[in-house]
Amino acid sequence: MEAVNQTGAASKASAAIELHNLEVKYGERSAVNDLSLTVPAGAIFGFLGPNGAGKTTTIKTMLGLRKPDGGSVCVLGYDAVMQSLEVRARVGYMSEVNSLYDFLTIPQHCAFCRSVSRQWDQEMVDRYVSLFGLPTNRKVGKFSKGMKSQLALSLLMGSNPDLLILDEPTAGLDPVARHQFLNHLVAEIAAQGKTIFFSSHILSEVEAVADWVGIIRDGKLIVCDELDHLKQTQKVLKLTYVELPPAAEVTMLRSLPGVMSLEQEGRSVRLLTHGDVESLSQTIQARSHALRNVDIVDLDLEDLFLKYMKEESNGR
């Protein structure tokens, strides 16, 4: 036990979450398969994946709500299976379903949380409650979905967690509530240096908030990298030809080194590239087919996500 703590303390500075070869099964079906993942301390990690990919199962395993069938889960330096209480004392968790008690008011929720938390900062909770403008005298059952999410986040902050694990925190929120929620998440909480791990299938919100991204599909992690690094190394090259390019030219473009995928719409060709996009652009412009326009644009997360999903589908 002592050894785990020491190891944990040493690695705490660098990694908030470390999963090694994680395997979780529902009966015979594998929900998470050989998943290895490291979330650096202080990161805002967006965990992306389609419905049923294994995001929630991975999160539940991190909190000790579900035991892994294989591999190891280390959260804030503590083993999530053997030291689950230590993990939960330092982690604030918000589930994908409304998990608050409908028959309780905000002060009653606070009293309950205070009684089961190792530390409790009521001033912090009050600050967030007034920031979100939540009514303290009404029962939570009468709150809207957005208000419940805001209250859940406020309550998380009461125990001053080092790590926030949010499972689809903005699911079901309208765009205004989602924007407000994410703004507070970044401006208030991430600014305090806390690590935020949140799952989502809304790509735009992950792109707006996260600095790290992991994509999971069918229980397998298919990419895990810094978002900026992913964007730097992968770009979109938009080519507009003067005349419709012949099929042979398109085939040649597809075969160029660094081209990951190609989409054509009439005279416009869109190349998803990897590596030195400038030299690739020069190579293409030096060819005999006249180009009206060449644009190098940053890849957005949606492109990336779709690319990885497509790759996986083709690979299967």
Binding site: L63, L65, L85, V97, S99, L100, V116, S117
Partner: peptide, 14 residues
């Protein structure tokens, strides 16, 4: 059934 089990079990109590 109501989903409150996650709120309960995510707290540092056995």
């Amino acid at each position: 059934n109501k989903g409150t089990i996650f709120f309960l079990l995510s707290k540092p109590v056995s």
